[in-house]
Nucleic acid binder design. Structure first.
Lengths: 250, 250
DNA sequence: GAGTGGTCTAGACCACATC
DNA sequence: ATGTGGTCTAGACCACTCA
């Protein structure tokens, strides 16, 4: 059972999506919402804080809250899992392992995955598609302790996330994403069916468990005509940070 | 005077940056922090909620909060203003207007800037540099009501944001950012000093006032070797959304 | 000046993690 | 069993917006 404040947040998102509160319109006052849902003002504030963080609504002291956007941001699971994202959009995800091998962990691997020693890591190169069209090349490095479970996953598995959860109960909880652009290399071009040197949107990411333990890091290259990313910002919440120079070290 | 919960959040960020709480370490319990700072538990929760939203710490019911990262995300002003961002990094920003002209608003402009009629908008093409190196081409369209103030800004103004604030009191409050990659066109290549067709990181954004009124929209193209973007995500907060296909309409 | 959001308190109960 | 974070309440005061 979801918490009451989550139910209220979900209810408000739905109302905004349905145009019940149009973009630019004012939301009811906190006390009004508290009365309508039969909860205290604090609970209503928890709900609207979530929508504010998502960039859906804005607030200023003394004035009613304003609806800023109607597009609802995706759940973390949908961002983390390519397959779940595709399903949520009503499209079919595919995936194919092109290469998979164990290698000695480099100093970089040890740092990013917070490994104790310089043992082995598992490298996996995957191509992923949307409705049969290839859109993403994924180069992932898994920590040693999860590698055996990853090796048991079939090569054409649609959702590695779902598989790992079934197998090990592992839940991905946090992620850091670093975004830039690169030229398609020979391998990228071949795997994605684009010309060499055509621009690709690159996302380098680290995913960790709820306890903060790194599970994997990955270099993902998207066809920019097929996929892009969006972020909402406000004075109160600013998830997007600009960085100068090569910056995957932090 | 900042609110007490903001002071506490700032204090905790500093402590994390200074390594007082290392990455992977546990934060003190809420009741402990409440006692130390002489506030109620609710106030402490407001403070740690901010750090959680920034991706600095993670939490799980029943367990102490974990420090996930030490890099603090930038303020909204630093994202919004190229000049303020550069200054915060100890680098020098420059800017130069290459072209500026009024044009009839297209249907696209009317939609994005929520204009009433199809009057005029102001197009500005700027090149921006870091320490003298050109890193960004900005193509901005300003709403008619702000255009006069923008036209009064000098061509080599370092911070347009600061200028507009001085002139009009205008504060940028919200932004939506859409990120993908493009090939450098002839104009881009010339202005940035890169080869034609080299990959550029593109950010299309809309900025609005605190009341939700759109001020400008812009197509910014960064040299990916000079600048990139980072985002922190978690199960509880997911600012980054992946989108399929061309998607600047929402 | 009335309404609204921002802040803070003091206390309560629950679910979950850890030992 | 104990400690911890997650949730919720009821009330208070202040700062700000807007008519």
């Amino acid at each position: 059972m979801a918490a009451r404040h989550e139910e209220i947040a979900e209810e408000l998102r739905r109302a905004i999506d349905d145009g019940e509160y149009a973009v630019g319109a004012l939301l009811p006052a906190e006390t009004g919402l508290a009365g309508r849902y039969g909860v205290s003002r604090g609970t209503v504030r928890q709900a609207v804080a979530a929508l504010t963080a998502e960039g859906l609504i804005g607030s200023r002291q003394g004035a009613r809250r304003v609806v800023l956007a109607s597009r609802r941001s995706q759940s973390f699971e949908e961002l983390r899992s390519f397959a779940q994202w595709a399903r949520a959009m009503g499209r079919r995800a595919s995936g194919l392992v092109v290469a998979r091998e164990r290698r000695r962990a480099t100093a970089e691997d040890v740092a990013r995955l917070q490994l104790r020693d310089d043992g082995e890591v598992l490298h996996v190169l995957r191509v992923r598609g949307l409705d049969g069209e290839r859109v993403l090349v994924e180069r992932t490095v898994y920590a040693d302790w999860i590698a055996p479970a990853v090796e048991r996953v079939e090569d054409d598995c649609e959702s590695v996330t779902a598989r790992l959860y079934q197998e090990t109960g592992l839940v991905f909880a946090y992620g850091k994403h670093l975004i830039d652009a690169v030229s398609a290399g020979a391998r990228d071009a071949e795997l994605l069916g684009v010309r060499r040197t055509s621009p690709l949107l690159r996302v380098r990411r680290v995913t960790t468990t709820a306890a903060g333990r790194p599970v994997e890091w990955s270099d993902d290259r998207y066809r920019p005509d097929a996929v892009n990313f969006s972020v909402h910002n406000s004075i109160g919440s600013n998830p997007l940070a600009r960085q100068a120079g090569p910056g995957f070290g932090g």
